[in-house]
């Protein structure tokens, strides 16, 4: 690819101008206000704002629930990607379309629905209650809501990779007498695990920031079931803008680092995959 031939096409200055204007107004300008707000805090105030014990409890709950949710999605997503990529069966198209439901359904709708279903007298909660399993108003409920809203990530990153895998490697392994599980582990898994990691990472990042789906089922009990997003919203409601900004800066840093790690990881993987061709 040469940079010279690239400029043959028209519209460079126009598209650059429109893009920069938009990015500055919509993305960068609001961030200046965050920096402005943070600059009103001294280091010790900032440190105090992000290490408040109630907030630290919310970090723990959010991380634990997001970890559980993304691990669940890694397994569920792998199962769904496999079934949708490998088999044909009646109703497959409906199953495939359903995988995108969590993205299409507003998070608040998912939130009140899960909270209603899994509450102690809800349709599912009442079945689990005699077994001693409580979902609503515990970290499990938070994990459930996070898992629901981030279902598509693993399915949709693994599914296309599985579909593109040629069948002859499978055949060779099986012809040589490998068991299904062994062949899967040695032939399929090396191809798809980068996609699994990427999808799980995205699911984790989304779960960390989830708000709408979580707040209804969480019960929002201080020190026990408050998530970080809720803590920010609470600070804002108390007009503690500086406190909210301090938490937001930390949240943004963590999500950007995660995003960067996922992008780097993906780039390395694709370079290795297509490395021989260029």
């Amino acid at each position: 690819m040469s940079t010279r031939s690239a400029r043959v096409l028209p519209g460079f200055s126009l598209s650059l101008g429109v893009t920069l204007l938009f990015v500055s107004l919509i993305l960068l300008l609001p961030m200046t206000s965050l920096i402005g707000q943070l600059s009103t805090l001294s280091w010790s105030q900032y440190w105090a704002a992000i290490t408040d014990p109630r907030l630290i409890a919310s970090y723990k709950v959010t991380l634990l629930a997001a970890l559980a949710a993304s691990l669940f999605n890694a397994l569920f997503g792998l199962l769904m990607a496999w079934v949708l990529a490998r088999y044909t069966f009646p109703g497959k198209r409906i199953l495939d379309a359903l995988m995108d439901l969590p993205f299409a359904l507003p998070t608040a709708v998912a939130g009140i629905t899960l909270a209603t279903l899994y509450s102690r007298n809800g349709a599912v909660g009442s079945l689990l209650d005699p077994l001693g399993i409580e979902i609503a108003y515990t970290w499990l409920g938070i994990a459930l809501a996070m898992a629901f809203t981030s279902v598509p990530f693993v399915v949709r990153t693994v599914q296309p990779v599985l579909e593109d895998l040629p069948g002859h490697a499978d055949e060779a392994a099986l012809t040589l007498g490998a068991s299904n599980l062994y062949a899967f582990r040695r032939v399929i898994l090396p191809h798809i695990w980068p996609a699994i990691v990427t999808g799980t990472g995205l699911s984790f990042a989304r779960s960390l920031g989830e708000f709408g789906a979580v707040i209804f089922i969480a019960g929002n009990m201080p020190y026990r079931t408050e998530v970080v997003s809720l803590m920010m919203a609470t600070r804002l409601e108390e007009y503690d803008y500086a406190g909210a900004a301090a938490i937001a800066s930390l949240v943004m840093l963590v999500s950007l680092l995660l995003l960067l790690a996922i992008n780097l990881w993906q780039g390395r993987f694709y370079r290795r995959l297509h490395g021989g061709r260029h």
Binding site: S33, A205, G209, S229, A233, L236, A245, M252, L258
Partner: peptide, 14 residues
């Protein structure tokens, strides 16, 4: 990548 609450907060601060 960021929580929707952060998005709202950025605009509220500005």
């Amino acid at each position: 990548a960021v929580s929707p609450v952060v998005a709202g907060l950025l605009y509220l601060l500005l």
